[in-house]
């Protein structure tokens, strides 16, 4: 199985078009949230996006970061230096944004406090910076705590569970195998939308195919992989 292929899932494509929208418009409401459970590929999609598009930057929030440290990190990722003061960081962000409009994506926002989110809101308001906040379900609740934040979030993207089409693309690109719509639906259902489970199932599938000398995925094999894993989870 190939590990070096990126699967452009439907969620990734939605995130890509969201970023294009944010960069192409300047209506003063450019805050967005990307919400989804673990394993839906939020972080990988964001990483991929900033790698292919230099107009986007990504900051991964960590628990030790204060709002000032968050500002300094944003300043560093945009300008390459970390000014000591918050005001210095703000100035640097401002001058960098004047050179080129970019999207600031912040991951793990669900772990932030309202003070951090308000720091992002200030950046958005003062500099008209598009801000994309990424996190798990808790993020929605965090945003709803303050009306002034909630009203600024113009775009809400939900990372849906992986669908059968994503499974078909994954098996084709990573394994070079074709799966029927029925098999894809079964595998998607078994994964409960978690990409990691899809990958684990594919690894199991490949092992079984090698062991038994089968060259194509069959309905029986698909059922066996899904059943076996259920047994493990139940134990």
């Amino acid at each position: 199985m190939r590990e070096d292929v990126f699967i452009p899932t439907q969620n990734y494509q939605k995130l890509q078009s969201l970023c294009e929208d944010l960069l192409s418009t300047s209506l003063g409401l450019e805050m967005a949230t990307v919400v989804g459970s673990t394993g839906r590929g939020k972080t990988t999609a964001a990483e991929r996006l900033i790698v292919v598009d230099p107009r986007a930057v990504l900051i991964r929030f960590q628990d030790w970061m204060t709002p000032r440290v968050l500002m300094r990190e944003i300043a560093f990722i945009l300008g390459g230096t970390r000014p000591r003061s918050g005001a210095g960081a703000y100035e640097l962000i401002q001058s960098e944004m004047a050179l080129q409009r970019r999207i600031i994506m912040v991951d793990e926002v669900d772990r932030m406090t309202l003070r951090h989110v308000n720091t992002l809101r200030d950046l958005h308001d003062a500099l008209k910076v598009p801000v994309v906040m990424i996190g798990e379900e808790m993020l929605s609740r965090l945003i709803e705590q303050e009306r002034r934040i909630k009203s600024r979030v113009a775009h809400q993207l939900r990372f849906e569970p992986l669908c059968a089409i994503d499974v078909v693309v994954f098996y084709r690109n990573a394994m070079g195998q074709a799966v029927t719509p029925k098999q894809a639906a079964q595998l998607a259902k078994h994964s409960a939308g978690d990409f990691r489970i899809v990958v684990n199932d594919a690894v199991q599938m490949e092992k079984k195919m090698k062991a038994s000398g089968i060259e194509a995925i069959t309905d029986e094999l698909t059922a066996e992989v899904c059943r076996e894993d259920d047994g493990k989870q139940g134990a």
């Binding site: 590990e3 070096d4 900033i50 292919v52 990504l58």
Partner: peptide, 19 residues
């Protein structure tokens, strides 16, 4: 950029992200 964002990585991670 992929290396900077991943910090710790395998060659496959970078190949995947950077195409």
């Amino acid at each position: 950029r992929a290396m900077h964002v991943k910090r710790a990585f395998t060659a496959a991670d970078i190949a995947m992200l950077a195409d």
